[in-house]
């Protein structure tokens, strides 16, 4: 019998604990598939963040470290420097990466650290109950911006890809979205490229996934994708910000 779909070897059999409609599982699967395809499972290590994907260390089927809030790029740096023969990625959400971990991500990128960072941006703190994130959109309501994000008071959302693209060292920076099958296929190509570059020791690679949070946004999964398309994508435009392998500087 022909197998047309199966669990990637790079995922454990532990069931995901994400909410219905959450796209973390999709992002996990894309990364796992890319690692399988590159044949890296025996030399791979990942770092899980604090946030909804805190249990990522249970889901990926190779050695994993769980990092303190925001510190995943520093932990990944330590692993990579200690085990240069391994391939290392960090997986982070928006609060983890763009608020408490701003220094770590900027400096890991600036060193051109030979790691991949996968950044899931859904404009909200999910695990702690829907608080405002550094990527929360203007006027967007959250439990800590109950009257909407007031940009005069708390500032504008941070566009992380654009921010990191000001640095010289990063090798590959791309923003993709996970809102439809077509976008997911496109995202898979970006993830595969990041993992391939990682395998080849090219340098720092960074993929941002524009994602959703049906639970904390208060929409059903379908509507949350529509909302993201209408509100997130105009502000967080998908695209390649840096790809030294393709001459995109």
């Amino acid at each position: 019998m022909e197998v047309i779909a199966k669990r990637p070897e790079s995922l454990t059999k532990t069931p995901f604990t994400y909410c219905p409609g959450c796209l973390h599982g999709v992002a996990h699967r894309l990364i796992a598939e890319a690692i399988d395809e590159q044949g890296l499972i025996n030399k791979m290590a990942g770092v899980a963040p604090v946030g909804c994907s805190v249990f990522a260390y249970k889901f990926f089927n190779f050695d994993m470290a769980q990092a303190a809030h925001g510190r995943a790029p520093a932990v990944a740096t330590g692993i990579k420097r200690a085990r240069p023969d391994m391939h290392v990625f960090a997986y982070q959400g928006d609060g983890d990466l763009a608020a408490i971990g701003t220094a770590e991500i900027v400096h890991a990128a600036n060193r051109g650290e030979h790691i991949s960072v996968f950044f899931v941006n859904n404009a909200i703190y999910g695990m702690t109950g829907g608080q405002m994130a550094p990527t929360t959109l203007p006027d967007m309501k959250t439990t800590t911006s109950p009257y909407g994000r007031k940009v005069d008071d708390i500032g504008y959302p941070i566009r992380v890809c654009e921010l990191l693209a000001t640095l010289v060292a990063p090798y590959y920076i791309e923003r993709v979205s996970l809102l439809s099958p077509a976008e997911i296929i496109k995202a898979k190509k970006a993830v595969s490229k990041a993992i391939q570059y990682n395998k080849e020791g090219r340098g720092f690679t960074f993929i941002e996934f524009v994602s959703t949070c049906p639970t904390n946004w208060g929409f059903d999964p379908v509507k949350s994708r529509d909302w993201a398309r209408e509100n997130m994508l105009p502000f967080y435009k998908p695209g390649v910000f840096r790809d030294k392998g393709e001459g995109v500087e």
């Binding site: 520093a74 330590g78 990579k80 085990r83 400096h107």
Partner: peptide, 13 residues
């Protein structure tokens, strides 16, 4: 803070 977390990573390795 970053330094000690790099230590965490390397010690974990």
């Amino acid at each position: 803070v970053s330094a000690i977390n790099m230590v965490y990573g390397a010690a974990g390795a």
